[in-house]
């Protein structure tokens, strides 16, 4: 991904090819107008988010969980599974008890 001049407080600009790369990572097939729209909108959102850069967070630990919970564990006891029919009930394409997908490579 192209990063254009992040030095000296200049903002990162997301390029069109960045948007295309992110779309591939996220598995979103975008139309031409969508690519243009997202390039513009992501830039304006991240421009706004750049306010975070002004904030000194040295020595601040990140919060991944707001709760001080730890060691939430379950016992190793078998519970009933779904019947195959129910497991496949919502599948767009199923055959013979399998989920079917198109060519992988």
């Amino acid at each position: 991904m192209a990063v254009e001049g992040k030095r000296g407080g200049e903002r990162v600009k997301i390029s069109r090819s960045d948007v295309e790369h992110v779309a591939l990572l996220a598995r979103l097939e975008l139309t031409e107008p969508e690519i243009e729209m997202f390039t513009e909108q992501l830039n304006s959102i991240l421009e706004y988010a750049a306010v975070l850069e002004q904030l000194n967070t040295d020595g601040v630990s990140p919060t991944a969980h707001v709760l001080p919970l730890h060691n939430v564990l379950r016992e190793d006891v078998v519970r009933p599974s779904l019947e195959q029919e129910k497991a496949l009930m919502n599948a767009p394409d199923a055959e013979n008890g399998f989920f079917r997908v198109p060519r992988i490579v």
């Binding site: 379950r74 190793d76 078998v78 009933p80 599974s81 779904l82 195959q84 497991a87």
Partner: peptide
């Protein structure tokens, strides 16, 4: 809580959690 037993008929040792259905949550064994 699905069994880890090897060799079951396809898609019979599954539940909403291991099928990754919308709305489910994991709990560590």
């Amino acid at each position: 809580g699905c069994s880890t037993e090897f060799g079951g008929e396809q898609n019979t040792h599954v539940c909403p959690v291991c099928l990754g259905m919308p709305g489910v949550l994991p709990v560590l064994n």
